[in-house]
């Protein structure tokens, strides 16, 4: 991933570090390996990946906001139950919103929109971060993780769509006689592409070949 939207504010105040952390150092897909179900299942085209990433990011942001603002009111014993209720609410909302925006997109994502509710990334951030930090930091955290997740999904989606269909966001970019790699559109191809991206990113993190 070459995109580093937060690079200019690296030296900024502490709170914004939470943003960069989610995009790069603790990227939910490539580093934490969370949320594998949508990562492998709906990244067969770049647009699916983008919508899925944005939907997840939205749910993440809203649940982090609510969990963080209610963190003193929710008793410890029932915190997981309330987090799940909050997350389920926003997933339902996102489901309706996507249907209202485009039925086509909703059809191509299938059941995976509803499955955001069990994405461990969201519950994980609620429990590990939002319930222990103030609202501002939680928003930065959710934005960082959300952007990191979306970018990672896009990384997979772009490669899979390009090789599997010869298109980029449904635009034909390769010559007409391009031979599509069917495996890239199947879940098996997602494993290959994910593995290669992880290889590349771990390589970049280590900084060149090891000696």
């Amino acid at each position: 991933m070459s995109t580093k939207p937060g690079e200019i504010i690296v030296t900024g105040p502490k709170d914004t570090d939470e943003f960069i952390k989610g995009v790069w150092a603790q990227n939910p897909v490539f580093v934490q390996v969370l949320g594998m179900c949508p990562t492998l299942a709906v990244t067969n085209t770049a647009s699916n990946a983008l919508v899925m990433g944005l939907a997840t990011a939205f749910v993440l942001l809203m649940s982090n906001v609510l969990v963080s603002s209610l963190r003193h009111a929710v008793p410890k014993q029932v915190r997981i139950a309330s987090y799940v209720a909050i997350i389920a609410t926003f997933v339902t909302a996102v489901d309706y919103i996507i249907q209202a925006v485009s039925l086509e997109v909703h059809k191509s994502l299938g059941a995976y929109v509803s499955l955001i509710v069990v994405n461990c990334l969201i519950l994980g951030r609620a429990e590990a971060f939002a319930s222990k930090n103030n609202l501002k930091r939680s928003i930065y955290d959710a934005l960082g993780m959300g952007v990191g997740f979306t970018l990672a999904l896009l990384c997979l989606g772009v490669v899979r769509e390009l090789l599997g269909n010869g298109t980029f966001f449904n635009l034909s970019v390769l010559p007409g006689n391009f031979q599509p790699w069917v495996i890239m559109l199947l879940p098996g191809g997602a494993f290959f592409v994910l593995a290669l991206w992880m290889l590349l990113i771990n390589r970049l993190k280590q900084g060149g070949p090891r000696d």
Partner: peptide, 29 residues
């Protein structure tokens, strides 16, 4: 009281979104 409160907030959010989106979804279909 907390759980009921959270439940109410959630219900409110869902109902609001539903009310806004339902006519649009119907037209879409």
């Amino acid at each position: 009281r907390t759980l009921v409160g959270i439940g109410l907030i959630c219900a409110l959010v869902i109902v609001t979104v539903f009310e806004v989106t339902f006519p649009i979804i119907k037209v879409n279909k």
